[in-house]
Design a protein around this nucleic acid. Structure first.
Length: 391
DNA sequence: AATTTCACG
DNA sequence: ACGTACGTGAAATTA
Protein backbone atom coordinates (compact mmCIF):
# COMPACT_ATOMS: atom_id res chain seq x y z
CA UNK A 1 0.00 0.00 0.00
CA UNK A 2 2.88 2.35 0.84
CA UNK A 3 4.69 1.70 -2.44
CA UNK A 4 1.55 1.59 -4.58
CA UNK A 5 0.37 4.99 -3.39
CA UNK A 6 -2.80 6.77 -4.49
CA UNK A 7 -3.53 9.04 -7.44
CA UNK A 8 -4.45 12.62 -6.50
CA UNK A 9 -6.25 15.16 -8.72
CA UNK A 10 -3.98 18.12 -8.02
CA UNK A 11 -5.69 20.45 -10.52
CA UNK A 12 -8.90 20.05 -8.59
CA UNK A 13 -7.19 20.82 -5.29
CA UNK A 14 -5.46 23.90 -6.71
CA UNK A 15 -8.81 25.24 -7.86
CA UNK A 16 -10.37 24.46 -4.50
CA UNK A 17 -7.50 26.21 -2.71
CA UNK A 18 -8.29 29.45 -4.54
CA UNK A 19 -11.94 29.14 -3.60
CA UNK A 20 -11.03 28.61 0.06
CA UNK A 21 -8.63 31.57 0.00
CA UNK A 22 -11.52 33.75 -1.13
CA UNK A 23 -13.75 32.45 1.64
CA UNK A 24 -11.04 33.07 4.22
CA UNK A 25 -10.62 36.72 3.31
CA UNK A 26 -14.39 37.20 3.29
CA UNK A 27 -14.78 35.64 6.75
CA UNK A 28 -11.77 37.57 8.07
CA UNK A 29 -13.38 40.89 7.14
CA UNK A 30 -16.69 39.88 8.69
CA UNK A 31 -14.99 38.79 11.91
CA UNK A 32 -13.12 42.10 12.26
CA UNK A 33 -16.29 44.05 11.54
CA UNK A 34 -18.35 42.04 14.00
CA UNK A 35 -15.67 42.25 16.70
CA UNK A 36 -15.10 45.96 16.15
CA UNK A 37 -11.34 45.31 16.11
CA UNK A 38 -8.62 43.38 14.25
CA UNK A 39 -6.72 40.45 15.78
CA UNK A 40 -5.03 37.19 14.83
CA UNK A 41 -7.97 34.81 14.35
CA UNK A 42 -5.64 31.80 14.26
CA UNK A 43 -4.51 32.57 17.81
CA UNK A 44 -6.73 30.77 20.33
CA UNK A 45 -5.41 33.13 23.00
CA UNK A 46 -6.50 36.24 21.12
CA UNK A 47 -9.84 34.66 20.14
CA UNK A 48 -10.50 34.01 23.82
CA UNK A 49 -9.60 37.56 24.80
CA UNK A 50 -11.84 39.04 22.10
CA UNK A 51 -14.79 36.81 23.05
CA UNK A 52 -14.59 37.03 26.82
CA UNK A 53 -12.77 40.33 27.63
CA UNK A 54 -13.62 42.59 24.67
CA UNK A 55 -17.11 41.41 23.68
CA UNK A 56 -17.91 39.81 27.07
CA UNK A 57 -20.29 37.32 25.43
CA UNK A 58 -20.50 35.29 28.66
CA UNK A 59 -19.38 35.73 32.24
CA UNK A 60 -18.66 32.05 32.77
CA UNK A 61 -15.83 31.41 30.31
CA UNK A 62 -14.07 28.06 30.55
CA UNK A 63 -10.31 27.98 31.01
CA UNK A 64 -7.72 25.48 29.81
CA UNK A 65 -5.31 23.89 32.28
CA UNK A 66 -2.80 26.69 31.62
CA UNK A 67 -5.32 29.38 32.50
CA UNK A 68 -6.07 30.57 28.96
CA UNK A 69 -9.64 30.88 27.79
CA UNK A 70 -10.81 27.65 26.13
CA UNK A 71 -12.13 28.23 22.60
CA UNK A 72 -12.36 24.70 21.23
CA UNK A 73 -15.28 23.66 19.06
CA UNK A 74 -17.33 22.20 21.92
CA UNK A 75 -17.06 25.53 23.77
CA UNK A 76 -17.92 27.64 20.71
CA UNK A 77 -20.89 25.44 19.74
CA UNK A 78 -22.53 26.22 23.08
CA UNK A 79 -21.89 29.96 22.62
CA UNK A 80 -23.39 30.18 19.12
CA UNK A 81 -26.57 31.88 20.33
CA UNK A 82 -24.66 34.49 22.38
CA UNK A 83 -23.08 36.42 19.51
CA UNK A 84 -22.92 36.25 15.69
CA UNK A 85 -19.11 36.24 15.75
CA UNK A 86 -19.07 32.66 17.08
CA UNK A 87 -20.46 31.13 13.90
CA UNK A 88 -17.93 33.10 11.86
CA UNK A 89 -15.07 31.83 14.00
CA UNK A 90 -16.22 28.24 13.58
CA UNK A 91 -16.42 28.66 9.82
CA UNK A 92 -13.00 30.32 9.73
CA UNK A 93 -11.48 27.44 11.70
CA UNK A 94 -13.03 24.87 9.35
CA UNK A 95 -11.85 26.51 6.14
CA UNK A 96 -8.33 27.30 7.39
CA UNK A 97 -7.92 23.74 8.70
CA UNK A 98 -8.88 22.20 5.38
CA UNK A 99 -6.69 24.55 3.35
CA UNK A 100 -3.58 24.39 5.54
CA UNK A 101 -3.70 20.70 6.47
CA UNK A 102 -4.96 19.05 3.28
CA UNK A 103 -5.65 21.14 0.19
CA UNK A 104 -2.30 22.96 0.03
CA UNK A 105 0.17 20.38 1.48
CA UNK A 106 -1.06 17.17 -0.23
CA UNK A 107 -0.22 18.14 -3.85
CA UNK A 108 3.30 19.04 -2.68
CA UNK A 109 3.80 15.49 -1.42
CA UNK A 110 3.02 13.73 -4.71
CA UNK A 111 6.11 11.70 -5.65
CA UNK A 112 7.95 12.98 -8.76
CA UNK A 113 8.60 9.51 -10.18
CA UNK A 114 5.36 7.71 -9.41
CA UNK A 115 3.08 10.78 -9.62
CA UNK A 116 1.26 9.31 -6.64
CA UNK A 117 0.85 10.08 -2.96
CA UNK A 118 2.68 7.65 -0.64
CA UNK A 119 1.93 7.43 3.08
CA UNK A 120 3.77 5.41 5.73
CA UNK A 121 1.84 2.92 7.84
CA UNK A 122 3.19 2.47 11.34
CA UNK A 123 2.62 -0.99 12.74
CA UNK A 124 4.04 -0.42 16.22
CA UNK A 125 2.76 3.01 17.26
CA UNK A 126 -0.86 2.68 18.38
CA UNK A 127 -1.16 1.00 21.79
CA UNK A 128 -4.26 -0.95 20.74
CA UNK A 129 -2.72 -2.60 17.65
CA UNK A 130 -4.26 -0.32 15.09
CA UNK A 131 -2.14 0.96 12.23
CA UNK A 132 -1.36 4.63 12.11
CA UNK A 133 -0.49 6.66 9.04
CA UNK A 134 1.89 9.58 8.67
CA UNK A 135 3.76 11.82 6.24
CA UNK A 136 1.10 12.31 5.08
CA UNK A 137 -1.60 10.94 7.35
CA UNK A 138 -4.14 9.43 4.93
CA UNK A 139 -6.33 8.07 7.73
CA UNK A 140 -7.85 11.45 8.56
CA UNK A 141 -8.85 12.80 5.15
CA UNK A 142 -11.99 14.95 5.65
CA UNK A 143 -15.48 13.61 4.90
CA UNK A 144 -17.88 15.05 7.50
CA UNK A 145 -18.34 18.62 6.24
CA UNK A 146 -19.49 19.63 2.75
CA UNK A 147 -16.15 21.35 2.10
CA UNK A 148 -14.36 18.28 3.43
CA UNK A 149 -16.15 16.06 0.94
CA UNK A 150 -14.57 18.09 -1.87
CA UNK A 151 -11.14 16.92 -0.70
CA UNK A 152 -12.15 13.25 -0.85
CA UNK A 153 -13.17 13.78 -4.46
CA UNK A 154 -9.51 14.46 -5.28
CA UNK A 155 -8.55 10.86 -4.40
CA UNK A 156 -9.06 9.12 -7.76
CA UNK A 157 -8.24 5.91 -9.68
CA UNK A 158 -4.90 5.71 -11.53
CA UNK A 159 -6.52 6.26 -14.96
CA UNK A 160 -9.85 6.18 -16.79
CA UNK A 161 -9.78 2.40 -17.12
CA UNK A 162 -9.67 1.99 -13.37
CA UNK A 163 -12.16 2.56 -10.55
CA UNK A 164 -11.97 2.66 -6.75
CA UNK A 165 -13.63 0.20 -4.40
CA UNK A 166 -14.24 1.25 -0.79
CA UNK A 167 -15.28 -1.56 1.58
CA UNK A 168 -15.95 -0.94 5.27
CA UNK A 169 -17.10 -2.96 8.26
CA UNK A 170 -20.47 -1.84 9.60
CA UNK A 171 -20.38 -1.26 13.39
CA UNK A 172 -17.29 -3.42 13.83
CA UNK A 173 -16.58 -2.35 17.41
CA UNK A 174 -20.15 -2.82 18.66
CA UNK A 175 -20.28 -6.26 17.03
CA UNK A 176 -17.05 -7.17 18.79
CA UNK A 177 -18.32 -6.05 22.19
CA UNK A 178 -21.47 -8.06 21.51
CA UNK A 179 -19.33 -11.13 20.79
CA UNK A 180 -16.93 -10.60 23.71
CA UNK A 181 -19.72 -9.96 26.23
CA UNK A 182 -22.19 -12.50 24.77
CA UNK A 183 -24.93 -10.05 25.77
CA UNK A 184 -28.20 -11.68 24.68
CA UNK A 185 -30.02 -8.48 23.75
CA UNK A 186 -27.17 -7.05 21.72
CA UNK A 187 -26.48 -10.39 20.00
CA UNK A 188 -30.14 -10.64 19.05
CA UNK A 189 -30.15 -7.11 17.62
CA UNK A 190 -27.20 -7.88 15.35
CA UNK A 191 -28.36 -11.39 14.41
CA UNK A 192 -31.74 -10.03 13.32
CA UNK A 193 -30.13 -7.23 11.33
CA UNK A 194 -31.69 -4.37 13.28
CA UNK A 195 -30.59 -0.73 13.25
CA UNK A 196 -28.38 -1.04 16.33
CA UNK A 197 -28.77 2.54 17.58
CA UNK A 198 -32.58 2.47 17.16
CA UNK A 199 -32.66 -0.93 18.83
CA UNK A 200 -30.59 0.42 21.74
CA UNK A 201 -32.93 3.41 22.07
CA UNK A 202 -35.98 1.15 22.13
CA UNK A 203 -34.47 -0.93 24.95
CA UNK A 204 -33.19 2.04 26.99
CA UNK A 205 -36.42 4.05 26.72
CA UNK A 206 -38.71 1.00 26.98
CA UNK A 207 -40.56 1.57 23.71
CA UNK A 208 -41.07 -0.19 20.39
CA UNK A 209 -38.33 0.21 17.80
CA UNK A 210 -40.67 1.98 15.36
CA UNK A 211 -41.59 4.55 18.02
CA UNK A 212 -37.99 5.73 18.50
CA UNK A 213 -37.60 9.44 17.75
CA UNK A 214 -34.60 10.89 15.95
CA UNK A 215 -33.38 12.46 19.17
CA UNK A 216 -33.71 9.19 21.07
CA UNK A 217 -31.77 7.35 18.38
CA UNK A 218 -29.11 10.04 18.40
CA UNK A 219 -28.79 9.79 22.20
CA UNK A 220 -28.57 6.00 22.01
CA UNK A 221 -25.84 6.35 19.40
CA UNK A 222 -23.83 8.49 21.80
CA UNK A 223 -24.43 5.92 24.54
CA UNK A 224 -23.12 3.16 22.27
CA UNK A 225 -19.98 5.19 21.56
CA UNK A 226 -19.65 5.77 25.26
CA UNK A 227 -19.84 2.04 25.94
CA UNK A 228 -16.91 1.41 23.61
CA UNK A 229 -14.87 4.18 25.26
CA UNK A 230 -15.59 3.21 28.88
CA UNK A 231 -18.62 5.34 29.67
CA UNK A 232 -18.96 7.93 32.44
CA UNK A 233 -21.98 9.96 33.45
CA UNK A 234 -19.93 13.13 33.07
CA UNK A 235 -18.71 12.27 29.57
CA UNK A 236 -22.21 11.39 28.38
CA UNK A 237 -23.76 14.49 29.96
CA UNK A 238 -21.22 16.71 28.15
CA UNK A 239 -21.98 15.20 24.77
CA UNK A 240 -25.74 15.13 25.16
CA UNK A 241 -25.80 18.52 26.89
CA UNK A 242 -27.86 17.11 29.76
CA UNK A 243 -27.30 16.93 33.50
CA UNK A 244 -25.08 14.29 35.08
CA UNK A 245 -28.15 12.94 36.87
CA UNK A 246 -30.03 12.43 33.61
CA UNK A 247 -26.96 10.86 32.05
CA UNK A 248 -26.64 8.47 34.95
CA UNK A 249 -30.29 7.45 34.57
CA UNK A 250 -29.71 6.63 30.90
CA UNK A 251 -26.61 4.59 31.75
CA UNK A 252 -28.39 2.71 34.55
CA UNK A 253 -31.24 1.89 32.18
CA UNK A 254 -28.71 0.77 29.54
CA UNK A 255 -27.03 -1.67 31.92
CA UNK A 256 -30.42 -3.06 33.01
CA UNK A 257 -31.18 -3.87 29.38
CA UNK A 258 -27.67 -5.06 28.50
CA UNK A 259 -26.48 -6.63 31.77
CA UNK A 260 -23.72 -8.73 30.19
CA UNK A 261 -22.10 -5.58 28.80
CA UNK A 262 -21.71 -4.36 32.37
CA UNK A 263 -20.28 -7.73 33.44
CA UNK A 264 -17.84 -7.66 30.51
CA UNK A 265 -16.62 -4.15 31.35
CA UNK A 266 -16.09 -5.08 35.02
CA UNK A 267 -14.26 -8.24 33.93
CA UNK A 268 -11.90 -6.23 31.69
CA UNK A 269 -10.90 -4.10 34.69
CA UNK A 270 -10.56 -7.15 36.94
CA UNK A 271 -8.33 -8.87 34.35
CA UNK A 272 -6.13 -5.80 34.10
CA UNK A 273 -5.77 -5.64 37.90
CA UNK A 274 -4.85 -9.31 38.19
CA UNK A 275 -2.58 -9.75 35.20
CA UNK A 276 -1.41 -6.19 34.56
CA UNK A 277 -2.63 -6.33 30.96
CA UNK A 278 -5.69 -6.90 28.79
CA UNK A 279 -5.81 -8.90 25.52
CA UNK A 280 -7.47 -8.79 22.12
CA UNK A 281 -9.20 -11.80 20.55
CA UNK A 282 -5.97 -12.80 18.78
CA UNK A 283 -3.90 -12.29 21.95
CA UNK A 284 -2.31 -8.86 21.56
CA UNK A 285 -1.61 -7.52 25.03
CA UNK A 286 -1.77 -3.97 26.32
CA UNK A 287 -0.06 -3.46 29.66
CA UNK A 288 -1.77 -0.99 32.00
CA UNK A 289 0.70 0.08 34.69
CA UNK A 290 -1.72 2.62 36.18
CA UNK A 291 -4.59 0.18 36.77
CA UNK A 292 -3.94 0.10 40.53
CA UNK A 293 -2.94 3.76 40.89
CA UNK A 294 -4.04 5.54 44.07
CA UNK A 295 -4.85 8.59 41.92
CA UNK A 296 -8.47 8.19 40.84
CA UNK A 297 -8.03 10.24 37.64
CA UNK A 298 -5.01 8.23 36.51
CA UNK A 299 -6.71 4.96 37.49
CA UNK A 300 -9.84 6.01 35.61
CA UNK A 301 -7.85 6.40 32.39
CA UNK A 302 -6.37 2.93 32.82
CA UNK A 303 -9.80 1.45 33.52
CA UNK A 304 -11.25 2.96 30.36
CA UNK A 305 -8.25 1.63 28.45
CA UNK A 306 -8.92 -1.82 29.93
CA UNK A 307 -12.40 -1.69 28.38
CA UNK A 308 -11.59 0.01 25.09
CA UNK A 309 -8.35 -1.75 24.12
CA UNK A 310 -9.74 -5.28 23.69
CA UNK A 311 -12.52 -3.84 21.54
CA UNK A 312 -10.52 -1.45 19.37
CA UNK A 313 -7.62 -3.93 19.24
CA UNK A 314 -9.77 -6.92 18.24
CA UNK A 315 -11.24 -4.84 15.42
CA UNK A 316 -7.65 -4.15 14.31
CA UNK A 317 -6.90 -7.89 14.51
CA UNK A 318 -9.86 -8.60 12.25
CA UNK A 319 -9.09 -6.12 9.49
CA UNK A 320 -5.41 -7.15 9.47
CA UNK A 321 -6.40 -10.79 8.93
CA UNK A 322 -8.74 -9.67 6.16
CA UNK A 323 -5.94 -7.66 4.53
CA UNK A 324 -3.60 -10.68 4.49
CA UNK A 325 -6.31 -12.90 3.02
CA UNK A 326 -7.25 -10.35 0.38
CA UNK A 327 -3.62 -9.80 -0.60
CA UNK A 328 -3.15 -13.58 -0.95
CA UNK A 329 -6.28 -13.71 -3.11
CA UNK A 330 -5.13 -10.87 -5.37
CA UNK A 331 -1.78 -12.57 -5.84
CA UNK A 332 -3.08 -16.05 -6.63
CA UNK A 333 -5.89 -14.83 -8.89
CA UNK A 334 -3.54 -12.70 -11.00
CA UNK A 335 -5.78 -9.64 -10.81
CA UNK A 336 -4.35 -6.20 -11.54
CA UNK A 337 -6.26 -4.62 -8.67
CA UNK A 338 -4.22 -3.13 -5.82
CA UNK A 339 -5.08 -2.56 -2.17
CA UNK A 340 -4.03 1.07 -1.63
CA UNK A 341 -5.43 2.41 1.68
CA UNK A 342 -6.58 1.22 5.11
CA UNK A 343 -8.57 3.45 7.45
CA UNK A 344 -9.20 1.28 10.55
CA UNK A 345 -12.45 -0.32 9.41
CA UNK A 346 -12.18 0.39 5.68
CA UNK A 347 -10.09 -0.84 2.74
CA UNK A 348 -9.67 0.98 -0.57
CA UNK A 349 -8.76 -0.71 -3.85
CA UNK A 350 -7.67 0.70 -7.21
CA UNK A 351 -8.88 -1.76 -9.83
CA UNK A 352 -9.44 -2.16 -13.57
CA UNK A 353 -13.13 -1.59 -14.24
CA UNK A 354 -13.57 -5.07 -15.71
CA UNK A 355 -12.34 -6.66 -12.46
CA UNK A 356 -14.31 -4.35 -10.18
CA UNK A 357 -17.74 -5.96 -9.78
CA UNK A 358 -16.41 -9.44 -8.99
CA UNK A 359 -13.62 -8.14 -6.78
CA UNK A 360 -16.06 -6.09 -4.73
CA UNK A 361 -18.08 -9.20 -3.90
CA UNK A 362 -14.93 -11.17 -3.11
CA UNK A 363 -13.62 -8.43 -0.80
CA UNK A 364 -16.94 -8.31 1.05
CA UNK A 365 -16.84 -12.07 1.49
CA UNK A 366 -13.25 -12.20 2.72
CA UNK A 367 -13.73 -9.27 5.13
CA UNK A 368 -16.94 -10.79 6.52
CA UNK A 369 -15.35 -14.19 7.11
CA UNK A 370 -11.80 -13.13 8.00
CA UNK A 371 -12.08 -13.72 11.74
CA UNK A 372 -15.07 -15.72 12.93
CA UNK A 373 -16.88 -14.35 15.95
CA UNK A 374 -20.36 -15.17 17.26
CA UNK A 375 -21.88 -12.20 15.44
CA UNK A 376 -22.41 -11.77 11.69
CA UNK A 377 -20.07 -9.16 10.17
CA UNK A 378 -21.74 -6.79 7.73
CA UNK A 379 -19.51 -5.14 5.09
CA UNK A 380 -20.62 -2.23 2.91
CA UNK A 381 -18.81 -1.79 -0.40
CA UNK A 382 -19.14 0.58 -3.34
CA UNK A 383 -17.46 1.55 -6.59
CA UNK A 384 -16.60 5.12 -7.48
CA UNK A 385 -14.62 7.44 -9.72
CA UNK A 386 -13.32 9.02 -6.52
CA UNK A 387 -13.08 8.15 -2.83
CA UNK A 388 -16.19 10.13 -1.89
CA UNK A 389 -18.32 8.47 -4.54
CA UNK A 390 -17.17 5.01 -3.41
CA UNK A 391 -18.86 5.64 -0.06
C1' DA B 1 9.05 21.88 23.29
C1' DA B 2 4.52 22.39 24.95
C1' DT B 3 -0.12 23.74 24.11
C1' DT B 4 -4.33 24.20 21.56
C1' DT B 5 -7.15 22.92 18.07
C1' DC B 6 -9.18 19.77 14.81
C1' DA B 7 -9.17 16.16 10.89
C1' DC B 8 -10.40 10.90 10.88
C1' DG B 9 -12.12 5.95 12.78
C1' DA C 1 -13.10 18.08 45.57
C1' DC C 2 -10.90 16.36 41.86
C1' DG C 3 -11.29 15.98 36.46
C1' DT C 4 -12.98 12.52 32.92
C1' DA C 5 -15.51 9.23 27.20
C1' DC C 6 -11.08 5.52 23.11
C1' DG C 7 -7.16 5.68 19.35
C1' DT C 8 -4.21 8.62 16.13
C1' DG C 9 -1.18 12.99 13.25
C1' DA C 10 -0.61 17.82 11.63
C1' DA C 11 -0.64 22.79 11.83
C1' DA C 12 -0.26 27.09 14.22
C1' DT C 13 0.68 29.60 18.27
C1' DT C 14 2.76 30.25 22.66
C1' DA C 15 6.25 29.82 26.12
Amino acid sequence: MEEEGVHLDCDMLHAFSKKLAGEISRIEKEVYETAGMEFKISSPKQVGEVLFDHLKITDKAKKTKTGQYATGEDVLQKLKSKHPIVELLLEYREVVKLKNTYVDPLPELVNDKTKRLHTSYNQVVAATGRLSSDKPNLQNIPIRSERGKEIRKAFVPRNDNYTLIAADYSQIELRIIAALSKDANMLEAFRSGQDIHASTAAKVYGIAIDEVTREQRSHAKMVNFGIIYGISAFGLSQRLNISRKEAKQIIDSYFEQFPSIKTFMDQCIADAREKGYVSTILGRKRYLRDINSANAVVRGFAERNAINSPIQGSAADMIKLAMIKIQNYLKKSGLKAKMILQVHDELIFDTPKEEAADLMEKVKEIMSEAMKIDVPMDVDANLGDNWLQAH
